[in-house]
Design a protein around this nucleic acid. Structure first.
Length: 578
RNA sequence: CGGGAUGUGGCGCAGUUUGGUAGCGCACUUCGCUUGGGACGAAGGGGUCGCACGUUCGAAUCGUGUCAUCCCGACCA
């Protein structure tokens, strides 16, 4: 490809609306352009990158025994009603009507469609197990799209779905996919961590996410990990705490009594007033789960993890109650307390979930739904608790549940996930096969996603410097750029053309910068776009030397044109493992 | 959905307070000159200032409404 003809417009400045490096560089270097909020044009350079990630994904999925198909982007309401998700998916599902007023949606994921395909085509246990996948654009009407390709509304995804006759078969396929994912991300030059996670709205039991670890804001997930193998998304992480039992006796509280605690609306204020540690307080928070109030209890020094709480009460939506909702709840129970004085006492017919940290409290402090008062020296028998669950947000420094060493925390970008769905879709959609006994059985399903466009953006987050992108060879739009310093110099031009032709003939993806630009412009563009290798043909050609520059390391080496060609081919073949 | 901000050529911005008919840098075209880290000179092309209504002799500028975009929060694979 000739640079003079390559469709790319690099910008001198970053776009004003970009926040994270991948967004900034992909726009500045001419890979993408925003069409509307969360929706991007993939320009030729970007499309080459995406196709490479797609193809690596395709090769590894095929190698793992999955079969590619393609499902429609527009889906009918009826299938979503069968699964029950038309009601529960919420506003993220982009709904529309056709000319006959029939309701449709843009596919945010394809469980419903694939399940319908399977029940039509997979009638016998003899056909199972099967894994079907596609690579396609998805649309999710995100509340707040941001970070460019990292959280778009329209994005490219590989989604795979497996059908099995038993949990054992599903486990096997799940492990098979985990290995395929490791291969895919490794080949993309993108180290990932496989972490345990919550299974979220898609539902099911077991799930893992593949995270690209980053220390920037682009990592929207907190990942807790240990030097042993344990690692988990914060929505799923568990830990051991050092303190076994917290007893008020250590602060001289041995007697149960109600104390005046004026203006202690926060844990801090209460601790100061009573001169007790936060860990002695039973914190009580009101949540609204599927529009019903729920009381969550947790030790005062810890935080609630809302996803865990949501799972504990079996809700599909949860949020903290507003001040007005708390007031309404208090009024309905005949109390006059506000935030800070809420307690489980007298909360009849309200679900009360306590974190496991509450179990180990003795002679503790708790609100009793009376303004400016708290109960001290309380015990667990003083009120009703419906269930104890781990609903606690883990903090760094707490101990690994597996080996007991301190946990560390980092940020991660989720580029892939694998779920065990079980019969969540096959049962309600009556998607069954006949077993050996001729009996109808629902498929045991799994689903496996990779954000293709997000993976590309994550690769930029993981590989860049002040000057631009440093694409891993396997997913770079082109492998090499040949830069003649002066297009007016016949010798430089002919050597550059010769190198260009040799590389082309060797199957290397190469660009020659034939523009009549000053060298600074060419070098800046080469660095910005992120060609893994650059061969510069300049004045030293009179001594028979050109320069080979490696983008990743910045290493520059002088050598003859033939040596440069051979070196580059050698490097690229090694990187691509062919 | 709550809070904040912004909409002026492809990109980044000034002009709005004190209404008078649009400007700068980059990019683009042509010529000259230059060629190892975003040169320089000259001459050009491209916008009627998000949209609508209103006030006014006159609106990018004032008013009302509306749409869009971005940030923080809530939410989320």
């Amino acid at each position: 490809m000739r640079m003079s003809k390559l469709f790319v417009q690099t910008l001198r400045e970053f776009p004003a609306d970009a926040e994270v490096v991948s967004h900034k560089f992909l726009v500045k270097a001419g890979f993408i352009r925003k069409l509307t909020s969360g929706v991007y044009n993939y320009l030729p350079l970007m499309w080459r990158v995406l196709k490479k990630i797609e193809n690596i994904t395709r090769e590894e999925m095929d190698k793992a025994g999955a079969q590619e198909l393609l499902m429609p982007f527009v889906q009918p309401k009826e299938l979503w009603e069968e699964s029950g998700r038309w009601e529960v998916y919420g506003k993220e599902l982009m709904r529309l009507k056709d000319r006959h007023n029939r309701e449709m949606c843009l596919g945010p994921t394809h469980e419903e469609i694939i399940t319908a395909i399977a029940r039509d085509g997979l009638k016998s246990y003899k056909q199972l197990p099967v894994n079907l996948y596609q690579i396609q654009s998805k649309f999710r009407d995100e509340v707040r799209p941001r970070f460019g390709l990292l959280r778009g509304r329209e994005f490219i995804m590989k989604d795979a779905y497996s059908f099995a006759t038993s949990q054992e078969e599903l486990d096997k396929e799940y492990d098979n996919m985990a290995q395929a994912y490791k291969n895919i991300f490794n080949r993309c030059g993108l180290p990932t961590k496989m972490v345990q996670s919550d299974s979220g709205a898609i539902g099911g039991s077991v799930s893992h996410e593949f995270m690209v670890i980053t220390d920037t804001d682009a990592g929207e997930n907190d990942v807790f990990y240990c030097e042993c193998d344990y690692s988990a998304n914060s929505n799923h992480a568990v830990s051991k705490l050092p303190e076994a039992v917290v007893d008020g006796a250590s602060c001289g509280i041995t007697e149960k009594k109600v104390l005046d605690t004026p203006q202690t609306h926060s844990i801090e204020a209460l601790c100061e007033f009573l001169n007790v540690p936060a860990s002695l307080i039973c914190k009580c928070l009101v949540y609204i789960a599927d529009s019903k109030p729920v009381l969550a209890l947790i030790r005062g020094d810890k935080q609630i993890e809302e996803t865990k709480l949501m799972n504990a009460v079996g809700a599909i939506e949860i949020r903290i109650a507003t001040a007005e909702e708390i007031e309404e709840l208090m009024n309905s129970k005949g109390f006059n307390a506000a935030k800070g004085f809420i307690g489980p006492k007298g909360m009849d017919d309200i679900t009360i979930v306590a974190d496991e940290t509450i179990k180990a409290l003795k002679n503790f402090v708790v609100g009793i739904n009376e303004e400016d008062k708290h109960l001290v020296g309380a015990s667990l028998e003083d009120f009703r608790i419906d269930k104890y669950e781990d609903i606690r947000l883990v903090e760094a420094g707490e101990f690994c549940p597996v080996c007991g060493k301190p946990l560390k925390v980092t940020k991660g970008i989720e580029v892939g996930n694998i779920f065990q769905l079980g019969t969540k879709y096959s049962k309600p959609m009556n998607a069954v096969y006949l077993d050996q006994n001729g009996k109808a059985q629902p498929y045991i399903m799994g689903c496996y996603g990779i954000g293709i466009s997000r993976t590309a953006a994550a690769a930029v987050e993981a590989h860049y410097d002040d000057w631009g992108i440093k694409w891993p060879v396997a997913i770079a739009p082109y492998h090499v750029i040949v830069v003649p310093v002066s297009t007016n110099d016949n010798q430089q031009m002919s050597v550059a053309e010769d190198i260009y032709n040799q590389l082309n003939n060797a199957g290397i993806e190469v660009v020659i910068d034939d523009r009549n630009e000053r060298p600074g412009v060419k070098f800046k563009d080469a660095d910005l776009i992120g060609f893994p290798y650059r061969i510069t043909v300049g004045k030293t050609i009179v001594d028979g030397k050109v320069e080979l520059v490696t983008r990743e390391s910045g290493e520059k080496v002088e050598m003859t044109p033939d040596e440069a060609v051979n070196k580059v081919i050698e490097y690229i073949k090694a990187a691509l493992l062919f």
